[in-house]
Design a protein around this nucleic acid. Structure first.
Length: 379
DNA sequence: CGGCTTTGACCTGCGC
DNA sequence: GCGCAGGTCAAAGCCG
């Protein structure tokens, strides 16, 4: 990776984390800290991750006028049956989220955590970032310009199980095609390759959560099978790859620890669950649900999908804006949630980018505008 | 024995 | 074309 890109990416990080940082202070989320101390939690930070997140996301709605609608982490995981090509979903592309891309430079992240620590008097902090990635629909619909590509293509993610499962199949097909060598076949192969390239552009939506935890693999109500582990460049901590064990469920998640703040675990979800949480099926829903969720319609009812509907996210997010190089104003939806659980306080930061231009996807393309904005706000 | 983790090999995409 | 890094596979081993 070139230095220019690294620099640009760092600038992106700075702006990204600047958003996190500002939101930590701009909003009245710290009020939650003293307001909800009676919310029960389980002892293990890992096993209570699901609970924590539900609490993080649901408790904040009580004081957030923007959020008339309950949204929990379970909602995040399940969402609802939604057509990502319709309605407002198409209105906003989302920040590209490949954890190494976003978090490999964690200067700002560490700052957020430390600031929060100072702010709340040394309480343990779970800091998580919900960072929705490109929508599948957007990928399909949005044209890819030579100078940029869709949001999702900014990452190196494979497109879910279907894609990965097709890898070998594709190789076999290519080999078969090689076997029959005609001029027509060659052109057909080219077309096939192009089509497959387009197919591979399709990425599952991704959400990255940053959580301060001692345990890498956080319990979220689903069952996961680890299928790989890789050393991460510039990091002493490996990245683990998990796949949902439910048959025909293509959801994956990556778990890695920040090398700059080892206390921070970065979990990236990819794909949509097409089933109910095993925890729910086992009758453990109540244990996993945050109290506020018990009073709201069950998020497990109906078909489930991941990620959450973007409208739901947007409902909960105050907006800010930034301008890109073309002086186009983009709405930014972001929020932080503080969730006190006895002596544990957590912060949820949700970033959302709305109404990006169709060709405004690549991280490299986003960086200048972020930088632009950064310079405007902080001369 | 089934389910899960570990781990080396392999594949793919991308930049040079 | 080559090298690198990310992502995935699958055999082997572990564990309850």
């Amino acid at each position: 990776m070139s230095d220019d890109k690294s620099t640009a990416r760092d600038l992106y990080y700075q702006e990204y984390h600047h958003q996190l940082y500002n939101n930590s202070y701009d909003r009245s989320t710290f009020n939650h800290q003293s307001g909800n101390n009676n919310i029960p939690r389980s002892s293990s930070s890992a096993s209570s991750f699901h609970n924590d997140l539900n609490g993080l996301l649901s408790s904040s709605s009580s004081s957030d006028p923007l959020t008339q609608q309950q949204l929990s982490f379970t909602d995040y995981l399940h969402g609802t049956s939604v057509d990502y090509n319709t309605g407002g979903d198409r209105d906003f592309n989302l920040l590209p989220c490949s954890s190494p891309e976003i978090f490999s430079s964690l200067d700002g992240v560490g700052g957020v955590l430390d600031k929060n620590k100072n702010h709340i008097g040394g309480s343990k902090i779970s800091n998580l970032v919900v960072d929705p990635a490109g929508c599948t629909g957007d990928i399909v619909n949005n044209p890819v310009t030579p100078n940029s590509s869709s949001v999702s293509s900014s990452s190196t993610e494979a497109a879910g199980d279907d894609d990965s499962c097709n890898k070998r199949k594709t190789n076999d097909e290519n080999q078969l095609s090689k076997g029959s060598e005609d001029g027509n076949d060659l052109s057909k192969n080219k077309l096939n390759k192009q089509n497959k390239k387009v197919d591979k552009k399709q990425r599952e939506p991704r959400f990255a959560f940053m959580t301060k935890s001692e345990v890498d693999h956080l319990e979220d109500g689903y069952r996961w099978r680890k299928y790989g582990q890789k050393a991460v460049k510039n990091s002493i901590y490996p990245r683990s790859y998990y796949r949902c064990t439910t048959q025909k469920c293509t959801v994956k998640k990556r778990v890695e620890r920040s090398y700059q703040d080892p206390a921070v675990v970065i979990t990236t979800y990819e794909g949509q669950h097409n089933h109910q949480s095993p925890a729910t099926l086992r009758g453990n829903a109540a244990r996993l649900l945050a109290p506020s969720m018990l009073t709201s319609p069950s998020p497990f009812v109906g078909s489930s999908s991941f990620p959450p509907r973007h409208q739901d996210l947007m409902l909960r997010m105050p907006s800010s804006s930034f301008t890109n190089d073309n002086n186009q104003v983009h709405d930014y939806k972001s929020s932080n949630y503080m969730y006190p659980q006895n002596n544990l306080t957590a912060t949820t930061t949700v970033l959302h980018q709305q109404q990006l231009p169709a060709d405004y996807g690549l991280l490299q393309d986003m960086v200048p505008s972020f930088n632009h904005d950064e310079q405007k706000q902080h001369p």
